[in-house]
Amino acid sequence: MKIQKLYLNTPQLEEQLQFYKNILGLPLNYKNETSIAFQIGQSELIFQHSEESKPYHFALNIPFELVEQAVEWVKERVVILKEADSDIQDFSAWKAKAIYFYDKDENIVELIGREDVKGNGDKNFSAASIISISEIGVPSTAIEKVYQSLSQVIELPIYDGSFHRFCAVGDPEGLFICINNEKKGTWFPTEDSALSSGFKIDFLEKGKEVKMVYNEKEGLFEKQ
């Protein structure tokens, strides 16, 4: 699954503009009164103004071989969110390593390097090294309901987990991180509450273009 566009809500459009453009140095694709869009490697991250929004958790793919360099790059710009004393979180079962930080909405942003996702040939880490949007968190009270609504639009494999507590749907290039926020109520590594938040997403799956909206009130995906 290749995520092309991810649309998130924000009550702080100008603050997010300054953060992603001036602090992280991501290319600004466009800006208007209600939205801003940034190029994230092969993907586009769009923030749309909303009077109210709950924090998201999303991830960006980076080259696995540049994770150590990415730590220093992040430290120059923001505070790294840690479990214990480690700057890098090691997910050996997924053949991946990750770094976490907050943006201006206290969204948990993750830079994840996966052995199974090829880099772009950069030798030194920079904003241009980011490959694509990798993951979006989908908290709900019923993972199976979320998965069934997703399957009505497009069939995606379960990458890891089950419907009980945690289920990653998709593949290493792109994942929906579905959690039951009554049984697993917080995000790693901060223990921040995992709150259901609506979003839109466009992605490619086996050459097919898919556009969906996640309805956080109903806890299901809808075709756009």
Score class of each variant (00 low, 15 high):
200 K>I: 01
140 S>V: 08
38 F>D: 02
102 Y>Q: 04
175 L>C: 05
168 A>I: 06
195 L>D: 12
38 F>A: 07
204 L>S: 12
102 Y>V: 07
131 I>D: 00
160 D>E: 11
75 K>Q: 13
182 E>I: 14
177 I>Y: 10
10 T>N: 09
29 N>W: 13
32 N>Q: 08
97 K>H: 06
191 E>L: 15
160 D>A: 12
199 F>I: 03
46 I>S: 04
156 L>Y: 05
147 Y>N: 05
155 E>Y: 11
62 I>Q: 03
158 I>H: 03
55 P>A: 06
30 Y>P: 10
103 D>Y: 00
153 V>Y: 03
44 E>F: 00
147 Y>C: 02
110 E>Q: 09
223 K>P: 00
199 F>M: 05
49 H>P: 03
14 E>R: 10
52 E>T: 15
16 Q>N: 14
166 F>M: 11
127 A>L: 07
193 S>H: 13
135 E>V: 08
109 V>P: 00
179 I>L: 13
123 K>E: 12
171 D>Y: 08
105 D>C: 07
157 P>T: 05
129 S>R: 08
127 A>S: 12
23 I>N: 10
215 N>H: 09
136 I>F: 12
208 K>M: 14
104 K>M: 15
19 F>A: 01
135 E>T: 09
178 C>A: 10
218 E>Q: 14
92 S>M: 12
151 S>H: 11
145 K>Q: 13
134 S>L: 11
105 D>N: 13
167 C>D: 01
60 L>G: 02
54 K>P: 02
119 G>K: 12
100 Y>S: 01
100 Y>K: 03
63 P>W: 10
68 E>V: 14
188 F>V: 09
165 R>A: 10
148 Q>P: 01
184 K>Q: 12
18 Q>K: 15
32 N>T: 06
74 V>R: 00
55 P>K: 04
27 P>H: 05
146 V>D: 07
145 K>A: 04
17 L>C: 06
177 I>E: 06
169 V>E: 01
105 D>F: 02
105 D>Y: 01
89 Q>L: 13
16 Q>T: 09
146 V>C: 06
217 K>S: 12
94 W>N: 05
59 A>G: 13
26 L>Y: 06
182 E>Y: 08
148 Q>N: 10
145 K>H: 09
206 K>H: 14
55 P>S: 08
69 Q>S: 14
106 E>G: 05
55 P>Q: 07
203 F>M: 06
100 Y>Q: 05
87 D>I: 00
10 T>S: 09
30 Y>G: 07
133 I>W: 01
224 Q>N: 07
100 Y>P: 00
37 A>H: 02
44 E>T: 15
162 S>M: 08
201 I>V: 13
45 L>N: 04
76 E>L: 13
221 F>K: 01
50 S>V: 12
37 A>L: 03
6 L>I: 02
132 S>N: 14
66 L>E: 04
204 L>K: 09
167 C>V: 04
64 F>M: 11
148 Q>D: 08
78 V>H: 01
102 Y>N: 11
189 P>S: 09
173 E>Y: 15
7 Y>K: 06
157 P>G: 07
148 Q>I: 06
181 N>T: 11
63 P>Y: 08
189 P>E: 03
58 F>K: 07
108 I>G: 00
156 L>S: 04
139 P>F: 02
92 S>D: 14
32 N>P: 01
198 G>S: 15
84 A>F: 10
71 V>A: 07
188 F>H: 03
188 F>A: 06
88 I>T: 00
66 L>A: 04
139 P>A: 14
73 W>Q: 02
35 S>R: 07
9 N>H: 15
167 C>L: 07
